[in-house]
Amino acid sequence: MSLWTRLTAWLALIFGLTYFLLPLIGMAEFSLKMRRGVYSLDAYAKVLGDPRFQETFTYSVVMALFTIAFGVLLVVPTAYWVRLKMPWARPYVEFVTLLPLVIPAIVIVFGYIRLYNTSSWLPLTGTAMGTNVLLMFGYATLALPYMYRAVDTGLRTIDVATLTEAAQSLGAGWITVLGRVILPNVLVAVLSGAFLTFAIVIGEFTMAALLNRPAFGPYLQVLGANRAYEPAALSVIAFAITWACMGLIQLATHLSKHTKAPR
């Protein structure tokens, strides 16, 4: 490896890191500047004490949890079934799961608003609960590419057919096979997908704003339009949550490697 290659590599890395670290530092520094002349946590105190923050944040967390539960229930059996019984359909299913990466979220939610409004055959937006359900489906759609990929990758590493036959020969039914055999074996993949879903839902803005739900993302945007320091503090919190989700994915993967090592 020539010196020149090494030098270029370091330069590329340092350039990249500078670009990534500056906004984070800028954001963190700004969030501490609320009190004139000194660094303080005033912005954080103010934000955390705001009942609107507590409401919207709780709302988003609950939505994230429901989305994860729904996503797992939808994706795990589907991916499993496709691998086991319909391998020929895998490319098509995969294509469909990747569509949300291509069709912008704003277009999808626009479709929801027109399709499920009060005068339609399924008036989900007519009630708050109906809208919540619709938003949850929307989040599940957004998370679908990530969730499906994670679970499908997880299933690839285990021999689905043999595990199923082994369990069935011992008298297990479909529910038992899925819940007791398949799910534990792809738990790490499911967790990865779950944390990623959490990170996506917590900060999501477009769908929540257009469906008029009191979620964290729209709250953040409104606050940003009216305040100076609090949004920076909230961004730091949002970044910390994303970081924690990714850290948990790493941790899950790491732990699973350890349990699987002595094979």
């Binding site: 500056l22 906004p23 949004p231």
Partner: peptide
């Protein structure tokens, strides 16, 4: 982390920078 750190918080980070 960074590829998922989009949306509103990212905008604030850049405004602050």
């Amino acid at each position: 982390v960074a590829s998922n750190f989009a949306g509103v918080p990212l905008a604030f980070a850049f405004l602050a920078t």
